[in-house]
Design a protein around this nucleic acid. Structure first.
Lengths: 326, 326
DNA sequence: CTGAAAGCGCTTACAG
DNA sequence: CTGAAAGCGCTTACAG
């Protein structure tokens, strides 16, 4: 590898006795250039370690080779684990497409909106991945109103029609319940959800309800409040029959599990959460979790945003569903 | 706010009967332009919602207004919580300086190095923040050999001399120990560390040792292996006197705490870890943690990298030390 | 199949 | 204090 910091297409053109236009086209594999010239240029460019200047290219094309990733404002810190795995999947796929990853993250919706606005109008970024999907969110609205493409992680609420990546949460809810019943002979699994009513929660609950209905088991659903524990304790006292828990996410599951053990003098109960976000050192053997493969979700998001050859395979689908596993 | 998507300095120049050069200088607050003209241009630019084109600016200046953030390859997922908080602090400060945040993250050192190389040679990024500081790391070496500035999170090992942000880990180790002794009347605190021997571990241990020496308490140090628990159990059995734990980080502390409770029939012990990474729902009231203020650390890293007016205050210091709190 | 030229939107040395 | 011009490194319509 030689010193490449100064090599431009003009240098290559001069050296090979070609014009700048021809070298540019050859490097972009333009079929109008003879195969022989294309190869000549490519080989020479490789040899001298030519690296295209993204700023020049983006200025010409009026479009950045970057994807803007938008973090939620008020998330639970535990979700950060999931987000970073998403980033890993996204960046890997982005690199394959010679794209770059830019981040919008902040403490308030205003600061995130500032970042995003700047990315669009100053950075000429035309593609975004949003790490949440709440309808009515001002950042999503901002992006939706701009002439850019975007994908959310998570299905939008009914009525909205943007690109998204998600899991089959109904099936995942059923699978989690089935897992408990099959492996631990659970008779009275409860479904624990948050009070937010996110779409993924509803789907997981539906999966739980459908399975229990099919098996003739009486369902039981409880919404766990974010802050206080009194009602949780009461609920646990009222339902001594509970021998298994399907929780809408790991955090919620852990919260319930802690109270359950306190209320039952350390007795355990089998729990299944979602996200596989807690390292095994932080939980015990009674706590299980559905792996949603965040890296795969990140990759799928990029595939939706950056058109590949294989894009045709997917046709007009506005979403990608990623597998899960327990 | 009017339609700003097409406003360039040329448009402003034409409208105001000025030259492009003057408008450019006025917007950059160049003192060679009269105050009156500067204000005129600024006000008109604001009115029409002018947004500078970063690609054009970066092409001209041969330098991107971006900071590249480098993630470690093999980290514990629990650390992701800390990293995202760092990102929040970094991005906030970056936005103030009209900088953009770019990410290099991958599964292997090779893929991270590819990202970083591309950022440097194609993206013209000249500033990096690295989320770790292992001397000998190939990514750090790559960056160190390039004509760019960088800051690591964490002090480099002895002999290296790059910019960094860190906490006063020796004092933090002493403070954590003091906290246990003061609040829980602990007589036999043990220090638990990993087998990696990171610089921050050594400093925290030193703080612990110095304090215990000062107080005339006999110290006890144990390295907890990453994978197996046998030696941990044995250690616990050999030291029934242990009534408090200072752990090198939350993860290590939690690992020890779990084994301790198993080995002592559920009996608790007071633990202090570092990072404040575990939400209180996941730990109990006996588990404490030193907050290292990752947002502040992120901000400090940006300040080291992007020269501000107040830069002079710091003089030639090659690092920033951020407070901690327990 | 290849080239000369214009243009993307900035900054800045040079000139006045 | 202000301006005309060159240049950053690309892509692409137009021409041959």
């Amino acid at each position: 590898m030689e010193d490449n910091s100064l090599v431009t297409i003009r240098d290559i053109a001069n050296k090979l006795g070609l014009s700048v236009s021809t070298v540019s086209r050859a490097l972009n594999n333009n079929p109008r250039i003879s195969v022989k010239t294309r190869r000549l240029v490519r080989e020479y460019a490789d040899k001298v370690g030519y690296e295209p200047n993204y700023n020049a290219r983006n200025l010409t094309l009026q479009e950045a080779n970057a994807v803007g990733v938008v973090f939620p404002v008020n998330e639970r810190v535990i979700d950060n684990i999931f987000y970073v795995e998403l980033l890993r999947g996204i960046n890997k796929q982005l690199n394959k497409n010679n794209f770059v990853l830019s981040i919008a993250i902040g403490d308030t919706a205003e600061s995130v909106m500032d970042s995003v606005s700047s990315m669009i109008s100053r950075g000429k970024i035309k593609r975004f991945i949003i790490f949440y999907s709440h309808a009515g969110d001002p950042v999503i609205k901002l992006i939706d109103d701009a002439p850019v493409d975007y994908v959310t992680i998570g299905k939008p609420t009914h009525g909205n029609n943007w690109l998204y990546v998600d899991n089959d949460n109904r099936k995942a809810g059923a699978d989690a319940s089935q897992f408990l019943i099959d492996n631990f002979n659970i008779k009275h699994p409860v479904f624990i959800e948050s009070t937010f009513g996110w779409p993924y929660e509803e789907d997981r609950r539906t999966g739980y309800l459908e399975l229990l209905d099919k098996l003739g088991i009486k369902p039981l659903v409880f919404s766990i409040p974010e802050d206080q524990t009194d009602s949780v304790d009461e609920f646990i006292k009222e339902h001594p029959e509970i021998d298994g828990v399907v929780a809408t996410d790991d955090y919620t599951g852990m919260k319930f599990y802690k109270r359950f053990r306190v209320m039952n003098d350390g007795r355990s109960v089998e729990v299944v959460g979602f996200n596989a976000s807690l390292p095994k050192e932080l939980v015990d053997e009674h706590f299980h979790s559905v792996n949603l493969f965040p890296k795969e979700m990140g990759k799928a998001a990029v595939d939706l945003l950056v058109k590949n050859d294989q894009e045709q395979l997917f046709g007009d689908q506005r979403f990608r569903i990623v597998d899960h596993e327990i």
